[in-house]
């Protein structure tokens, strides 16, 4: 009992100090802060879309078809006369939601499976690892396309498909980390005093595998946003008339010569938000890297 109390209190102090140090390191990293700011900007735009929007995202108009950017339509209008700026604001919701929700699915499914595989080892590990390898053998986007095809095209199904395709990444990562952590003295100690396995996994292993999972999750959000845009671009994600950056590009590619602004802005937005998440992920990796602490 005493052993448990001392480890618990020692652990309670250490992470706080570690977190503070990581925070300082992160804030000193200019590109990471820039990435974080980009992400924050897009999150705010998505949340306050109805307040910022200058038009109705669904309002079509025959008099304003494919108008170039102007004071009335900041980023121009599309093939049905709808305001592109407004549609992009609402489209940011689809992109960010797809990014975050599909990664949440991948983490919720992948991390426990990885913990179990790494902690128990033996045939449990063998079965989980073989399934992971099989899923990894089918490229991310191909699997997502196939799932979207069989589940039917919609934003929800695209998110499920992207989430499921990202599961093996998290199984593999968590398993490797759990393997490394389970031989540590404090885990041996917890086992020696007879704590149940699920509790050891949740209380002692999980907190120690969390930092690399956070880094991977941030970078996977970037990949997932591109994947959602790709599926919507192919017509397998967000369905019209609901806006998403990918589906806006899908129609825009038919008007490349007549209305280049239709392609330039939504694609630029995808690029910026993905860049933001990648910079943020790289910054988190540097800040949380135990080798430098």
């Amino acid at each position: 009992m005493t052993a448990q109390v001392t480890t618990a209190s020692a652990e309670a102090i250490a992470p706080k100090r570690k977190l503070g140090r990581a925070m300082t390191k992160f804030l000193k990293n200019r590109s990471a802060v820039f990435g974080g700011a980009l992400v924050l900007l897009f999150v705010l735009l998505a949340i306050f879309a109805p307040l910022i929007a200058t038009h109705d995202p669904f309002q079509t108009s025959f008099t304003t078809i494919r108008k170039p950017p102007s004071a009335a339509f900041w980023l121009g209008t599309d093939e049905l006369g709808r305001d592109i700026f407004t549609r992009m604001l609402y489209g940011s919701r689809a992109s960010l939601m797809a990014g975050v929700i599909s990664v949440t699915i991948a983490v919720i499914v992948g991390v426990p499976l990885g913990l179990i595989a790494g902690y128990y080892g033996g045939w449990t590990d063998a079965v989980i690892s073989r399934i992971t390898e099989a899923l990894l053998a089918i490229p991310f986007l191909i699997l997502a396309i196939a799932l979207a095809a069989f589940l039917g095209p919609s934003l929800t199904n695209a998110m499920i498909a992207i989430g499921l395709s990202a599961v093996p990444i998290f199984i593999r990562l968590t398993r490797g980390q759990a393997l490394a952590v389970k031989t540590e003295d404090y885990v041996e100690g917890a086992r020696a005093i007879g704590l149940p396995n699920p509790l050891i996994m949740a209380r002692y292993i999980f907190p120690n595998v969390l930092p690399p999972i956070m880094v991977q999750a941030t970078i996977t959000v970037a990949t997932a946003i591109i994947a959602e845009a790709s599926l919507s671009f192919l017509g397998l994600g967000q369905q019209p008339p609901n806006p998403s950056w990918g589906s806006m590009l899908n129609t825009a590619k038919n008007f490349m010569t007549q209305a280049p602004w239709m392609s330039i802005f939504p694609g630029g937005a995808i690029f910026l938000v993905v860049l933001g998440f990648n910079l943020l992920g790289d910054g988190l990796r540097d800040a949380l890297d135990p080798r430098d602490n």
Binding site: A222, I226, A229, S230, F233, L249, A252, K253, M256, T257, P260, S263, I264, G267, G268, I270, F271, V274, L275, N278, L279, D282
Partner: peptide, 22 residues
Amino acid sequence: ALSGVSIPNFWLGIILIMVVSV
């Protein structure tokens, strides 16, 4: 390299078509 990873390749394709081909 970071831009290369972040740019959606179908968008880059559209932009290149607009500039190089059109």
